[in-house]
């Protein structure tokens, strides 16, 4: 089963602030989305809106063509996982898998047990007694094994240790290839997750700053390196995201992509052009220097 998610001019306001502002985007089946944003950018709120934990103040959300809010047909197909508080939960992890088996039509018990073994997650220990990293692993196990057409993982990996994060990334790649669905991974661990992401949604102060394929997102940034005066001349009319200098050498990050003749002009001026990692671009697009285009 596949489902499409459509957000149209979605805003969510509290009495004091606008948390999500005019977000319009479409999530397509089979794609892995990176929802990027700094702390407080609104990532969790946006996912909670898609998961119908709350309703937009204005705008519409449609999943498979229907309003998902209090929608019994859609609810089992939308899976939203985040670092929950398990301090009061004295049941073992196996109970969570049983609940998933009852409620989630695509849940694969054997796969869940395979993942639990992979993450070295004991299924018979009260969840409150597990380390926070293993509690996060439980979220990841459920998130993958329910195989929900709309799977939203909100930073669950942030609490996992590095070996388990690596295992999770491998599992995401494998299972998304076997059972394509919409997977949204919200993260600020951009560098280690970059290769998982087909499409980037960059949220900044509640607004969607970018919504495009990962490859075209990273092509937005180009570094120009060389003798300071030559670099300055070359970047004169371009939007500068970041500048650093070492002696007489200057490196400027500008918004790309560059046309072929511009690349040639750079080469003739003795300048070196370089690509930018998603992480660097994310940092410079969401910090004051980048956001204000100073």
């Amino acid at each position: 089963m596949t489902m499409k998610v459509e957000l149209n001019d979605v805003s969510w306001r509290t009495k004091k602030t606008t948390v999500i502002e005019d977000v319009t985007m479409t999530l397509e089946p089979g794609m892995t989305y990176g929802l990027l944003g700094r702390n407080g950018a609104g990532k969790t709120s946006l996912l909670a809106l898609i998961a119908s934990y709350m309703q937009p103040t204005s705008g519409t959300i449609r999943i498979d063509g229907e309003n998902p809010f209090e929608n019994e047909r859609l609810a089992p197909h939308v899976c939203f996982l985040f670092n929950a508080d398990y301090s009061e939960e004295d049941g073992p992890a196996s109970e969570y898998l049983e609940a998933a088996a009852r409620y989630r039509p695509n849940f694969d018990q054997a796969y869940a047990e395979e993942l639990a073994a992979l993450f070295e997650l004991p299924l018979d220990v009260p969840v409150q007694k597990l380390s926070s990293g293993l509690q996060a692993s439980l979220e990841a196990v459920i998130g993958l094994a329910v195989r929900a057409p709309v799977t939203l993982l909100d930073e669950v990996y942030a609490g996992m240790d590095a070996p388990n994060r690596t295992r999770l990334y491998d599992a995401v790649v494998e299972d998304q290839a076997r059972h394509p669905r919409i997977i949204v991974l919200s993260t600020h661990l951009v560098s280690e997750m970059e290769y998982l992401l087909d499409h980037v949604c960059l949220l900044h102060e509640g607004r969607l700053l970018a919504d495009e394929p990962a490859a075209s997102f990273t092509a937005r940034g180009v570094t120009v390196t060389g003798e300071a005066a030559a670099v300055d001349a070359f970047v004169l009319d371009r939007e500068i995201l970041h500048t650093k200098e070492l002696g007489g050498t200057k490196q400027v990050l500008v918004t790309g992509p560059l046309a072929e003749e511009e690349r040639q002009a750079a080469a003739e001026a003795g300048l070196t052009l370089g690509s930018v990692s998603m992480q660097d671009l994310f940092i410079h697009l969401t910090t004051k220097e980048g956001a204000s285009h100073a």
Binding site: Y195, D198, P213, A214
Partner: peptide, 15 residues
């Protein structure tokens, strides 16, 4: 397989 290459190179499957 593509999956194996994604895991080995840590490069997106579309690439």
């Amino acid at each position: 397989s593509t999956t194996q290459m994604v895991q080995f190179y840590q490069v997106n499957h579309l690439t």
